[in-house]
Design a binder for these strands. Structure first.
Lengths: 342, 342
DNA sequence: ATGAAAGCGCTAACAT
DNA sequence: ATGTTAGCGCTTTCAT
């Protein structure tokens, strides 16, 4: 043992609490709270100044856990998405973080990786962490919200067309957006229009498929080929190859996501085909990737920022506590090169 | 006053606490804790079963805030990145979430949007929330860690070549990676190799620039043109146009990020130039975008998952508490089409 | 093997 | 205007 040790370092600063501040400023802890929170009581300017000074001097920082315990609110919201590496969801996550941050809420991000068990685990975990709300972009049509409901944590389903009973949803009219896209293709004279559809875990048909069918039917056109695959670049690539291998190759394709369109583009390029000359393409989402592909993609834009704001507002903002409602945002066809417009 | 009110609805279920569980199971609250946490004391199997049953029956879920307050740990880590919409960072965020989740930690995501004030605010905020560690992919060479240090919250700098004193850093050898890329281009016979460099907020030169210079100098080649712009598609697009407008147009370009390369690609396509025939291109990061561009991008891959794991481990895993160290991961040149390889 | 009880730091109702 | 104080739900030491 080294008994000669000199206690050089200053005693390990333990956490400064409101008590220390109160003592230093010569006031009570309540006053410190009032100053820190700007209420609920008024404090004399002079006192306030003293407290502020004490806070500065001591380097006091409120303990969020204690506050959360007392208030029953962590000022945090949870986000459950399939995959933050997917541009659409990373854009969404960013938008949700901004919207939450503007209201003083932090964002806990969880990826469910298309894995049902993981999604459930993430939801449980968020519930246990006393988040004040959960934004859910589930892989499921009807996600399991029991854990949230049991904990009385509000949730909103994002990017969801469905009208799940009793849950607030925020999304776009997928069918209408898809119809617009397909109609645009029809307007270019195409009669054999394929569909690259993403696969959903639930058993509900995706409304984008409906929209494609409707547009075709309304125009008296037959349904073109369908390729189902994941909502990813890899999935789109596989779908693209399948279209090319099929006997009755379409002259135009509607892809249910930009990522799939990017994959399709690669498959077409590799086959030496030109877009839109040989095959025209319109996709869905309006992510930045669609603006920088070659050719640039005509795509149906989802107003992600508006949707994120609406979701957060429903959870912890002005719309909190309102009865469940279904907010449907308009999509907008962003016309670029891949559709064949001059 | 309506004294006739019939108490129809069941009393609004207030949160079930460990006290309720204890009473229901006929044990003390301590035993409930032992069961829930698997320690620190042993519990008789029969008692444990009773408690588990009570937990199930009552739908008990532990309150994380209380636990955090008691333990001084929120089992949460913070992540500060410039922009989650940027594929490189969204990939990183996903990897960090996975690594943290594997250790039982949740991830609080914050975007600083290249904004210094916002970065500082995010850091303060995370500190106040008692996160157990912060992974920082700062826009700055030497981010302001005072708030974290004051709160004794460990932090690690990610994607950082620097050896900031006293802070653990995790990154790749940017200079070496860049050199490899440029040497590859030189190997293809190029003698006029441009650099599309991202702009950093600090005043330190990015090591990728060094690597470019070194490779050129070692080969006895003159420095090609430099275009500086943001680490984004938009930035790359602008850089690409500048290269094209310059008198002495390079025959090859090294871009400091995949995003910039994607932007450059667009500028070249629009100008009717082919890659790699007219201009060869190699970039940095190894994001999935580089695999699905046209042509596909030869790029210097960063082992993002390994880096994320190392960062999390240093914060709250096996390496916690170790003295500050600098973990440098190897990069790998992913050869695809844009460089001109056959 | 189990229980009692002392706080963790904060908020806000209730004094003064 | 300011102070006192009772918890929020949990962990864990110290009894039993």
């Amino acid at each position: 043992m080294d008994t000669m040790t000199i206690p050089a370092a200053p005693a390990p600063r333990t956490q400064v609490t409101r008590k220390d501040v109160a003592r230093y400023a010569g006031v009570s802890t309540a006053v410190v709270s009032y100053v820190v929170n700007g209420g609920p009581k008024k404090v004399a300017p002079a006192t306030e100044a003293k407290v502020q000074e004490a806070i500065r001097q001591l380097g006091y920082r409120p303990n969020a856990a204690a506050r959360a315990l007392k208030l029953g609110s962590s000022e945090t919201i949870g986000l459950v998405i399939p995959d933050n590496s997917n541009p659409f969801f990373s854009m969404l996550a960013h938008a949700v973080e901004d919207a939450a941050g503007a209201l003083g809420y932090a964002l806990v991000l969880t990826n469910s990786d298309g894995n049902l068990a993981k999604e459930r685990r993430n939801i449980r975990n968020l519930a246990a962490r006393q988040v004040d709300g959960v934004v859910l972009a589930s892989v499921l049509f009807e996600p399991e919200l029991d854990d949230l409901e049991a904990a009385e944590i509000p949730s909103v389903l994002l990017s969801h067309s469905g009208s799940s009973a009793g849950v607030t949803t925020v999304g776009v009219d997928l069918a209408k957006g898809a119809r617009t896209a397909v109609e645009h293709l029809i307007g270019h004279g195409h009669t054999n229009i394929g569909l690259a559809m993403g696969t959903t875990t639930g058993n509900e048909a995706d409304a984008r498929e409906e929209g494609w069918v409707q547009a075709l039917r309304d125009a008296g056109l037959p349904e073109g080929p369908i390729a189902r695959s994941a909502f990813t670049r890899v999935g789109g690539y596989a779908a693209g190859k399948r279209f090319l291998a099929s006997g009755h190759r379409p002259t135009a394709i509607f892809a249910s996501s930009d990522m799939q369109a990017i994959g399709i583009l690669r498959a077409l390029h590799e086959a030496g085909l030109s877009v839109p000359e040989d095959i025209a393409l319109v996709s869905f989402d309006g992510s930045e990737d669609a603006e920088y592909s070659w050719p640039t993609l005509t795509t149906v834009e989802q107003p992600v920022r508006d949707m994120a704001e609406a979701a957060v507002r429903a959870l912890v903002g002005a719309d909190r506590g309102e009865p469940a409602q279904h907010r449907v945002f308009p999509t907008k066809l962003l016309v670029r090169q891949s559709c064949g417009c001059p």
